[in-house]
Computed example of a mutant assay.
Amino acid sequence: MRDDSAQKPSADRPYEVGYCKPPIATRFGQRQPPKRRSGGTEQPLPDIAAILDHPIAVKVNGRNGRLHPHEAALHGLFGRVVKGEIRAIKQFLKECDRAGLLAAQTAAFDCVVHLPNDIPWELACYILQHAGLPPWDPLLVASYLAEYKADLERLERVEPGNKRSPDDHGR
């Protein structure tokens, strides 16, 4: 059996702190949290948007220069793309898509469009841009033609020397 009198301090014999004898207050992990010192005023949070808006010093192709942080990040990302990192390639494609670089381009081709003879050239081009290739709905053409004639009348009032008539096809 163990002698418990060696473990517990008595009134006539004080507890001695030493090797394998920690202080009683902290002996079983019951420790008070450390006292916090008041550091005065708190530091203001940095303005991240302002930091990211200023150019940073970089070295590109052996020359020192300044780049926008986003552009510098894209240079680094492209370097990883060239090395063949799959994750970098995916991220680069996302950035290109976000910038609109991957949008399908409309093919430029030469073609002949037969326009109705009773529509002025400028009006036919306008309808072509907004409604697509003919044949057009007669109500659509009539509404555009009425608006076109009203515009010509307004121009005649502003510029009296303009002798353009709605029947002149501009050809």
Rank of each mutant, 00 (worst) to 15 (best):
E85Q: 09
L67G: 00
V81G: 01
R80E: 05
C96P: 12
G62C: 08
L77P: 03
K90F: 06
G76R: 07
L93K: 15
H75Q: 11
N64D: 14
L67I: 01
H68R: 02
R63I: 06
I86S: 06
K83V: 12
E71I: 04
N61W: 10
V81K: 03
R63C: 12
K90V: 10
G76K: 08
R80D: 03
D97I: 10
G79I: 04
I86P: 02
I86H: 07
L74M: 04
P69W: 00
H70I: 11
F92K: 04
V81N: 03
I86L: 12
H70D: 12
L77V: 01
R66T: 15
L77A: 00
I89E: 08
R98F: 08
K83T: 05
R66C: 09
C96V: 09
R66H: 11
E71L: 05
E95Q: 13
L77F: 01
Q91V: 04
G84D: 05
V82D: 10
K83Q: 13
G76C: 08
G62Y: 12
K90I: 11
V81I: 12
V81Q: 03
H70S: 08
I86W: 03
K90M: 10
V82G: 05
F78Y: 11
K83W: 05
A72E: 01
V81F: 07
R98W: 08
K83N: 15
Q91N: 01
N61I: 11
V82W: 08
L67F: 01
N64L: 13
L67A: 03
F78K: 04
F92R: 06
H75F: 11
I86A: 11
N64A: 14
N64I: 14
E85K: 10
A73M: 00
G84P: 06
A99T: 12
E85H: 08
H70Y: 05
H75R: 11
R98N: 05
G76V: 02
C96M: 15
K94I: 13
E85S: 03
E71Q: 12
A72W: 03
G79F: 05
E71G: 04
L74G: 02
K90A: 12
N61D: 15
E85N: 08
I89W: 06
A72C: 02
L67E: 03
G79Y: 07
E71Y: 06
R80F: 03
R87Q: 11
R80L: 06
E85G: 04
H70V: 09
E95D: 12
Q91G: 00
K90Q: 08
